[in-house]
């Protein structure tokens, strides 16, 4: 494969350089925007932080005053922002105003948990969605095709929290084999991942099916069949690669949604994820935590995009040639 022999060709270098600059700008813009937005929210910041630290039983004006003094919240906002920039320049995300723990520790643990959940969901979705989509695409209009269409509509229309409760009731409570919630037991990830994966698998099956249908009706595929290849051979050699392109793009886009949109699922399954933490941080006006989370998620999404672009480039020689030609022309 020419990819392997020319790992650092100009196409790849240009892609990486552009994305690195994008990521850096993104990090600073996101962090600063978070700061400005959070600081301009209505409500007293010290009281919010005190309420989150000490709970609704012990929050009081005295507690809020102590927090205000401890965190120097009365100082001008620009000084706090300057502080954050200085820390960022030293690769330090600061300390959570609520827990007093380093933001990096909290974010890496919670973002790690979310990525683990998202990875499990994507894997499950691929395992369920791709074979179903392929089978449906080989016989468009067949029983399986109509069944996947129906399932897709049903799963897409079901709100995630309802699907989660149904899965909890069905698989965990009724059969009693899987843990309902938590993250300590090895199989705890299965139910939340499945909740996220079912909707994703349904969409993926339709995308795969559509792509395969296009491929099957194309002239090159027709030629492969007429030159005597079996169904399976034609599919393996001439079908999978073009089908993989839209499937990878679809998964890439939705993996981002999984990381940022899993709040409901994380809360319901008591999963220590970043969505849940971010919502809490916003309630608590925990500015460094919000900035740190947004920054890490921004960088993560930038790397996601890079991976998806890279995968598309690796899968599709046409794109590489186009880019190489464009590079040569400039």
């Amino acid at each position: 494969m020419d990819l392997m022999t020319k790992p650092l060709s100009s196409v790849w270098l240009r892609l990486l350089a552009r994305r690195a600059v994008q990521a850096l700008v993104l990090a600073l813009v996101v962090g600063t925007a978070c700061f400005i937005i959070t600081r301009s929210l209505p409500g007293d910041m010290a009281t919010r932080i005190a309420a989150s630290r000490y709970g609704y039983d012990l929050v009081s004006n005295a507690a809020a005053d102590a927090v205000r003094t401890e965190l120097a919240l009365a100082q001008p906002a620009w000084r706090a922002l300057l502080d954050w920039w200085q820390h960022i320049a030293q690769l330090d995300l600061g300390v959570s105003l609520v827990s007093g723990e380093p933001v990096w520790d909290e974010v890496s643990y919670q973002l790690g948990a979310t990525m683990y959940l998202a990875a499990a969901a994507v894997l499950l979705a691929a395992l369920l969605g791709v074979p179903l989509g392929l089978a449906a695409g080989l016989r468009p209009g067949g029983k399986l095709d109509r069944l996947t269409l129906g399932l897709t509509v049903l799963l897409r229309a079901t709100p995630p929290f309802m699907l989660a409760l149904l899965l909890m009731l069905g698989l965990a409570v009724h059969f009693g084999e899987l843990p309902v919630a938590g993250h300590e037991e090895g199989w705890s990830v299965l139910l939340p991942a499945m909740t996220l994966a079912l909707g994703l698998a349904a969409g993926l099956a339709r995308v795969t099916r559509g792509a395969l249908q296009d491929v099957v009706s194309s002239a090159p595929y027709e030629f492969a069949r007429t030159k005597g290849l079996t169904d399976m051979q034609a599919l393996l050699h001439h079908g999978l690669r073009p089908v993989a392109l839209p499937a990878v793009t679809y998964l890439g886009v939705h993996a981002v949604f999984l990381v940022e949109g899993a709040v409901v699922i994380e809360t319901l399954f008591a999963w220590p994820g970043i969505g849940h933490a971010l919502v809490h941080a916003i309630f608590a006006r925990d500015v460094p935590m919000i900035q740190g989370t947004a920054l890490c998620m921004g960088l993560l999404f930038a790397s996601f995009n890079l991976l998806v672009d890279g995968a598309s480039l690796a899968l599709d020689p046409r794109q590489r040639h186009r880019r190489e030609e464009a590079g040569a022309a400039t």
Binding site: G43, D44, T47, R48, A51, V59, S60, A64
Partner: peptide, 8 residues
Amino acid sequence: GNSGNIPL
């Protein structure tokens, strides 16, 4: 709103 709004 937030529980702190009552003391506030």
